[in-house]
Amino acid sequence: MTSEAMTAPAHHHAEPMHGAREFLTFTLGDEEYAVDILKVQEIRGYDPVTAIANTPAFIKGVVNLRGAIVPIVDLRVKFHLGSADYHERTVVIVLNLSGRIVGAVVDGVSDVVSLSPDQIKPAPEFSNLLDTQYLMGLGTTEQRMLILVDIERLMTSKEMALVDESALARRAPVHH
């Protein structure tokens, strides 16, 4: 393996507020996104991938993550944000979505924020990048606006082509 797992960014808030949830924030182009920290397994550098033929361009391929074959998705390519180049500072967020592991390439990882329910507003209908069904809402903290992504729903969606449809059908009833 060519790169070691990096440690997750330090938490800014020692005590999460009551009912608050923690999110890992990352950037794609100029926009700031966030995902539920509980879905994040680790953050790594970008290892060379083994390409898979006849897959969409945003599926870079598969890598060996401690013996498991894990697909790598470049969210920058998927959403046409940022520049899709790969160097030693390229970051992969390794997500664990109900036992399925997926790596997501992003522009950069910022920090972990804690958001209470009143800091999360419903997402407006005009997001052109992401269908609102994949959004949990917009989070506001310290003048920042974070786009909260329902990463599990997004990654297991048909348009990401990461999961067999038969497997999707099986998973549907237990979706949380």
């Binding site: 083994t50 898979i52 033929a53 391929g61 060996n64 074959i69 697909p71 999961v163 067999d164 497997a167």
Partner: peptide, 26 residues
Amino acid sequence: KSMESNFRRVDGISGATIMGDGRVAL
């Protein structure tokens, strides 16, 4: 190694393995 445990079935590929250098071969 199974491709399906984290990914999906791919036409023409029955599985994957990890080579001596740690890279994945199909």
